[in-house]
Design a protein around this nucleic acid. Structure first.
Lengths: 335, 335
DNA sequence: CTGAAAGCGCTTACAG
DNA sequence: CTGAAAGCGCTTACAG
């Protein structure tokens, strides 16, 4: 493969001149410049990113995306939305995208990545926030952005919807349409920020409308269909089963509906609202709180790029994006 | 950040000795070696991958995954399955994973990647095969593996299911349960290998069982729900509508069922078999041809690793993986 | 068994 | 306006 040396020789100039011309820097005569460009094209020269990275900032132009290991905790639709958003903004800036996930072995993997120079910045979509890793990144003054509200004690840039508010609004709309027995099923363990925020919005809505908060109406789930079934069964076994449910994920909501069907009940027997929207929720006709994951990913990556472009430590920024409540056939007033 | 120079100084040895010790090479005294290792730990030294890559093979230890742009043509479940498979094998070998997709601007992006030294090998999951890119990769003797049967004229390693055979078997099982009017809806345009292979298996099954092949029973779709609806509407408008259908994707199959429902028909009105299996197909109760995407991804990456480890040109290998036919409630005998 | 030196492909002051 | 030189962080023959 051709190197810059070959290009210089082919064009009959010095290596430095070739570098300048190829990067559009310096003040070369138009003639020399085009002579060099032509030589590069003739040899189909592509710069070696490693050498370039080594000599500039010791980094390669790559953004790293950290997501949960596929198959756990989140819907593939969400994952792909994120990757597509990050990838789009990254590629606009001629950045590559590196994908990795937490492996349960602790955050050391992320730090390896950072120190090896393979990435210039990181975006995180990790439900359980690892404070220690973030602290270390802060100490290193390494650029990163969270696609979620940061955990207590971490000062950094982030982009997210207001989960508590979205949950509050959804609960209120159920109350307003006459429901008084409303259940909540979390998308993940309660120590996950997203679970806690949504739970507190739900609770707040009940209390501010003079409805009792009852723990037996709360189920702790994970992202899959089974956990939706379990939640529904738990709720149906109560003396006074809820008439409305807020599901933590599409698959959970589907599980709830399946559970209803298994008992020979209509899927509109209960009012069901799910977090996250997808073709799935649409085709099942499930009312959904649309979290604009793709937009969150894009905005996060934009913040990251801004931060990378600014070598000095700058103030973290945060963006709160609005969630949209989409009413479909599972939104039924109390009967 | 600490460099190898710092480590050498801290341990009181030469840079060469430090390099040897850190890489477990050369013959150093046990004492010197551990002295160096300890110094590295004390400084929390992480080697700079760029420098290392530059000096060894001009490449960084990264595998590139090329998939279609998210949101087009394929189910996120499939995409995540692939990423998870590639990532798992890659990380076993301490490789990073770089994600990219075709952008419709031609394959030059891939070649940039290759020549920049960012990846040591590529795995492709691309329905429409770009012969020119593959030829160039062959010329460069650059390691890559396809997660699909290669197109005509490309000689390379690949891993795939036998789509024609899977389609044949599914069609035969419909014939055996009494269907004579069987429709086929492709997952993509017909010039995609996967569409063509499945179509030819379907056609072959009909012909070898003395059933006529009728073009009005064939619909050309894409991966989404709408195309399933369209296909069903096309078929239902025929004088003799099919009694059984083979769908190209889960979403297509769901579209077919939705279309049935919209007309007030039971979803078991028709026998429906879908390609690809997912929680979706499971929860809808759609009979499915399970394509082990995750396994395909893993095996492909293993082949790639083998190829990378072997600097000399070696013979391409191919692996055909069996598809599994899973019968669910949409598999109904002819009425 | 260990050290000094060359070199991977590039960029960036610095001379001229 | 252009060239010679140093250097990014590492590894690998090659001396000793």
């Amino acid at each position: 493969m051709a190197t810059i040396k070959d290009v210089a020789k082919e064009a009959g100039v010095s290596i430095a001149a070739a570098s300048l011309a190829l990067n559009g820097k310096g003040s070369l005569s138009e003639e020399t410049r085009s002579k060099i460009i032509e030589a590069a094209e003739r040899l189909s020269y592509k710069p070696n990113a490693l050498a370039k990275g080594l000599v500039t900032n010791n980094k390669i132009n790559t953004v790293g995306v950290i997501i949960p290991k596929p198959g756990t905790e989140f819907l593939p639709f969400v994952g792909m939305d994120i990757l597509s958003g990050v990838g789009e903004v990254a590629s606009e800036k001629k950045y590559n995208m590196l994908l990795d996930w937490e492996d349960g072995l602790g955050g050391s993997k992320v730090l390896d990545l950072v120190q090896s120079g393979i990435v210039r910045g990181l975006v995180f979509f990790v439900p359980l926030n690892d404070v220690k890793t973030f602290r270390t990144l802060n100490d290193l003054n390494f650029p990163y952005v969270l696609m979620s509200r940061p955990p207590e004690g971490v000062y950094c840039s982030w982009v997210d919807v207001d989960n508590a508010d979205a949950s509050y609004q959804a609960t209120v709309s159920l109350i307003k349409s006459g429901h008084t027995r409303i259940a909540y099923s979390s998308p993940a363990p309660m120590d996950y920020l997203v679970s806690g925020d949504r739970h507190s919005g739900y609770r707040q809505a009940l209390l501010s409308h003079n409805l009792a908060y009852d723990e037996s109406y709360v189920s702790i789930g994970d992202g899959d269909i089974q956990s939706g079934k379990r939640a529904m069964e738990q709720f149906l076994s109560l003396n006074e089963p809820p008439t409305a449910l807020i599901a933590g994920s599409n698959l959970q909501a589907i599980g709830m509906i399946e559970s209803l069907k298994e008992r020979g009940l209509d899927h509109r027997e209960k009012a069901i609202i799910t977090f996250d929207d997808s073709p799935l929720a649409e085709s099942y006709g499930i009312s959904a709180i649309h979290i604009p994951t793709n937009l969150i990913a894009k905005e996060s990556t934009r913040l990251l790029m801004k931060r990378i472009a600014n070598p000095r430590r700058i103030e973290p920024e945060s963006i709160v994006i609005g969630a949209e409540f989409i009413i479909r056939s599972t939104f039924v007033p109390v009967r």
